[in-house]
């Protein structure tokens, strides 16, 4: 153990501990293409931090830079007080990495996967035998301990990947789209596991393009698009700041959406001052439907009906991060 890190980890109460991740002006270029374009953020210990954005926004690249497997073009980064580019192995020893696609070792059994992974960290065998049992039960895979990995279902593989990443009891867990491709039940099992980790004090950093996942798991998140941060805050804060409380979804049929949007906008803007409080903000046109942003969507709908407009379907719902993203970028998250 180097003296510097021994100090910082043994005396957290005296001075403020080094933040889990400290990133300033991160830039990553591949040739002419700029994947990450000046991202700055900080993650404190024990926090659950999310990077939210569409495919190709630069989330995974940022994760790779944190995990010391991609170099930075410019900018500064400290993970647990260490520079990943200078002390890659030591930084990775404090991380648990869960990549987008399970990269389990198909030539080994379930238990061997955990033990071997621990060996890569230089952990002693005696510790790993006990730890493997513990992790297998955490992942609900005790009955599969000696199976080949290829016999596992998708959800089981995902849980094994997560269990494996915990073998070194990481300070920071990096999750790249942890539940993409899982069925709803497997997803909820996984969320439950991640909650427990969070409660036990593990720092979580995750990327996702699922809004519900971000709302479930993240204390704080940044919205990333085109390699830059568009907004930052808690899920509720972001919604409050960038969207109305409720949304009214209307369908008028494909070709009428644009003209109806104009009409509704005029209607709601003009009547708002007059009768009743709607809290109207604006109308978004999507290819298949209109989104009417208003504090009180029910009242907005009554007004629209009263004016004689007849949508094919209508739906009132609460605003979500999806709406925040739409507002910030003018695009939806999942194309």
């Amino acid at each position: 153990m180097p003296i510097s890190t021994a100090l910082s980890s043994s005396a957290p109460s005296d001075t403020a501990p080094a933040p889990a991740i400290h990133a300033v002006d991160l830039v990553k270029k591949y040739g002419d293409f700029t994947a990450v374009d000046g991202i700055t953020f900080q993650v404190t210990r024990g926090e659950s931090f999310g990077l939210l954005g569409p495919n190709g926004a630069g989330k995974s690249t940022t994760m790779r830079m944190i995990a010391a497997v991609a170099s930075r073009t410019s900018g500064q980064m400290l993970v647990a007080g260490l520079d990943p580019e200078q002390q890659g192995p030591e930084v990775r020893a404090r991380l648990g990495v869960i990549p987008q696609q399970d990269n389990l070792d198909e030539e080994l059994t379930v238990r061997e996967n955990i033990i071997m992974y621990g060996r890569y960290f230089g952990l002693p065998r005696r510790y790993l035998l006990a730890k493997a049992d513990e992790l297998l039960s955490f992942a609900q895979l005790e009955h599969k301990a000696n199976s080949r990995v290829e016999d596992l279902s998708g959800g089981m593989k995902r849980r094994l990947t997560i269990a494996r990443a915990l073998v070194n009891e990481p300070e920071v867990l990096l999750l790249d789209e942890p539940t993409t491709g899982l069925d709803p039940q497997a997803r909820h099992v996984l969320w439950d596991r991640l909650f427990r980790l969070k409660e036990s004090g593990t720092t979580l950093v995750l990327t996702t393009h699922h809004m519900d996942e971000a709302e479930q798991l993240c204390d704080r998140l940044v919205v990333v698009d085109h390699g830059a941060i568009m907004a930052e805050g808690s899920p509720a804060g972001l919604i409050r700041e960038h969207s109305t409380r409720e949304v009214l979804e209307l369908r008028f049929g494909m070709d009428r959406n644009t003209e109806q949007a104009k009409i509704l906008e005029d209607l709601l803007t003009n009547t708002d001052a007059g009768s009743g409080d709607v809290g109207f903000s604006h109308v978004e046109v999507l290819p298949d439907r209109l989104l009417v942003y208003a504090e009180y969507a029910e009242s907005a709908m009554e007004k629209i009906h009263a004016a004689g407009h007849k949508p094919i379907t209508s739906l009132v719902r609460r605003s979500s991060l999806e709406d925040v993203f739409l507002r910030l970028t003018g695009r939806s998250l999942i194309d």
């Binding site: 995990a67 497997v69 890659g88 192995p89 030591e90 990775r92 020893a93 991380l95 990495v97 990549p99 990269n103 389990l104 070792d105 992974y117 890569y120 960290f121 230089g122 990443a165 070194n168």
Partner: peptide
């Protein structure tokens, strides 16, 4: 890729 997630160089 898996190995490079750990403290192996």
């Amino acid at each position: 890729q898996t190995m490079m997630q750990t403290s192996l160089g």
